Simulated assay, not measured.
Amino acid sequence: MTSAEDLRRLALGLSGTSEAPHFDRIAFKAVRIYATLAPDRLSANLKFTPEEQEFKCLLAPEAFKPIPNAWGRQGWTVAVLSALSEEELRAALEMAWKHGTVKKKR
């Protein structure tokens, strides 16, 4: 079972990550945002590919679910912090962080 403090500690431990407000959330960004913490601090949105999202949601449906909108179809996924071990959260953050280290193609 992890918490918002665990998410923050693990995310800030990833190379180049900074923390900043993002609307009503807290964003974690390398080159691009790869994770945001919900205002209630109980869940986070993580950037996966659609294939990674499908895998995570099948593997642990109590912990991961697609965001129910266009962002979700792009791979953004809700992670329920209390349903994740620290190891699972670290792995998910590292996966999302890789997407946050790449500049957007124009």
Results as ranks from 00 to 15, higher is better:
T77Y: 02
L7G: 04
K29G: 01
D24N: 11
D6T: 09
R9K: 14
K56T: 09
C57P: 05
S15W: 08
L42P: 00
R9S: 14
Q74R: 15
P50E: 09
P21C: 06
E51M: 08
P39Q: 08
K29A: 13
G13E: 03
G75R: 02
F23N: 08
T49R: 05
T17C: 11
R8E: 10
T36A: 03
K103C: 05
E19I: 03
G75L: 04
E5C: 03
T49N: 07
I33A: 07
G100L: 02
M1V: 11
K56R: 13
P39H: 07
A20L: 14
F64V: 07
I67M: 14
V80W: 09
P61Y: 09
K98L: 15
A92C: 09
A35G: 06
P68V: 09
E19V: 00
E5W: 02
D24P: 03
E51L: 13
F28S: 02
G100I: 00
F55G: 09
A44T: 14
S15L: 13
L81R: 06
L93E: 03
R73E: 15
E88V: 01
A4L: 09
I26V: 15
S82T: 12
E62N: 12
W97E: 01
L37T: 04
K104Q: 15
I33E: 02
L37F: 07
K65D: 12
L81M: 07
